[in-house]
Write a protein that binds this DNA or RNA. Structure first.
Lengths: 111, 111
DNA sequence: ACAATATATGCCGATATTGGCATATAATCA
DNA sequence: TGATTATATGCCAATATCGGCATATATTGT
């Protein structure tokens, strides 16, 4: 057998750097395919294909306006990733705090 | 050309559900390969291979003890994922808050 | 030295993925 | 209707991935 899961869930969709880049580009405004192409300077079919994956996963939504398609990010679909990674946050946050404590202590001693 | 990036960065490593599962298993304790195998009930080579990927990416670290290898999670390597996804958090959180506001308002009116 | 335990590796087959190019489809305009 | 613009699709080649099985390596114990 081969790979179990494919590009059909948010984790996989976002594993591809170019798709992350597209989502970043869409974070503020909704944009036309051509606007994304111009902004990123990638071949149009490449952008369309990645948008297709993102749409299938639900990370972007598409609105039609004449012959244009306007894409916007659907950030709620990123929540599973946020929810998965957040429980690990305390690991680096704690060590950060510990470092802060050490630094604080050093400053006190200097005085 | 083919796929650009492989299983050499945290995003890709974590895109595979089985690897997420391993990281969850290691979240609390450091564990032996055999302990992971027993806990997940997966074939041992499968576990070792996924651990290999996680180790290459730096998401786990390995300590030797006799003929055993004890793995522990290195959660700081998850920080890039956290940092990437966090800026999108306000999207779903805002709508949540808006809902809260509405509910709060409704309760006030009831009084 | 030999057996047993713990773990990693190598090879294979099946398949998914990505980029590139050409082309199809759809919508607007002259 | 025919041309032009906007976007999606199809096909191909190259390659990476995953699981499964057998096997190698390393360490310990007898």
């Amino acid at each position: 057998m081969a790979r179990t899961s494919t590009t059909h869930d948010p984790f996989n969709a976002v594993a591809e750097p170019k798709r992350r880049r597209i989502l970043e580009t869409l974070a503020n405004d909704e944009l036309t395919v051509t606007e994304i192409v111009d902004s990123l300077d990638w071949p149009q079919p490449m952008v369309s294909k990645h948008l297709g994956v993102l749409k299938k996963v639900g990370l972007v939504e598409e609105r039609r306006a004449g012959r244009q398609r306007i894409y916007r990010v659907n950030a709620e679909r990123l929540k599973p990733i946020f929810d998965w990674v957040t429980p690990f946050e305390h690991y680096w946050r704690e060590s950060f705090n510990r470092l802060d404590d050490v630094l604080e202590e050093l400053q006190k001693k200097e005085k």
